[in-house]
Write a protein that binds this DNA or RNA. Sequence first.
DNA 1: GTAATACTCTATCGAATCAATAGAGTAACA
DNA 2: TGTTACTCTATTGATTCGATAGAGTATTAC
Lengths: 171, 171
Amino acid sequence: MKLTKRGEYALRALIGLGIARESGAPIVRIRDLAEKENIPVKFLEAILIELKTAGFLESKRGKQGGYSLAKPADRISIGDVIRKIEGPLAPIACVSQTCYERCSCPDEAHCGLRMVMLEVRNAVARILDAYTLKQTVDAMMRKMREDSVSIPFLSGTEARDSKPLGELAPK
Amino acid sequence: MKLTKRGEYALRALIGLGIARESGAPIVRIRDLAEKENIPVKFLEAILIELKTAGFLESKRGKQGGYSLAKPADRISIGDVIRKIEGPLAPIACVSQTCYERCSCPDEAHCGLRMVMLEVRNAVARILDAYTLKQTVDAMMRKMREDSVSIPFLSGTEARDSKPLGELAPK
DNA sequence: GTAATACTCTATCGAATCAATAGAGTAACA
DNA sequence: TGTTACTCTATTGATTCGATAGAGTATTAC
């Protein structure tokens, strides 16, 4: 029942890039993203390449380069990301929709464990497939606004042509 | 999001012992349980000791010995078993009720990932804490009866003083 | 009481996964 | 044309996973 660091970092990176996009500065350097999200740079590098290969991100080399979302944030579901990075959502392969595999129990059709785990997998999938990156980012920003916290989409480096969201009340 | 073999075997063993109890032959040998559930004997040994230490099982040595449930099946929740064997239900430590731990994100209070994962952990816990071993066993036996399948609580070894459930229609 | 039985303990195993780091290489922009 | 920043390959130590081996010990039936 566990999300690995790899998966956690992947999702936090995507969310970070979602915020960056929303903020009008969609392209972010690995280094900046790593610093902002407290993720080891080299580890993040590998994860971003994986996310790019999976079609979630695109990259630009050279000066002013970096990573950005490859598609609108409302077309990326958390569930799909986790499936790509971590594998199936199901806690046990015999209830997986995407990666079914028979297990060692003597009678799958009447396995009590399977019945329970099927409910779990459905509940998890219902949540994670419903949540898009956009919804997640929006919920985050809403909460920050409620608490009057400034949105630090590109804090750290002042450089780059970033336009801070005007309507936010700082402090 | 994964249940390990250890956890799977533990739950299947408990369910097996739940059926055995229901069937009037509550004490089952490791060897028989392993054979019935397709679990490696030596691996199961270790798991049963763990379940005993955790208070779910009790054991009897010598002839006619074996393992049995230490308490009624409706006082054992699937969630508690998994917590003992696998650890916290939460996919990420920062949303765990039982084993909270701060994660590396810069602002936990406004972390979008955390919001999503909190929903997942609550959904999972709601299911797993509601299901007792008894409910699981009952659901299983009901389904078997529906499909007119005999309940094989002690198949394999004919020996021991087992009373087969009379009302079941074989084949 | 004693032998068979069945749980208990310690130890070890290879394989796989996890989390992270190092360093050289290459495309692109100013 | 040099700096920038992504890309690729390789390796690392630690931990967990799944499983097995074998000796030891308590209990019961006879």
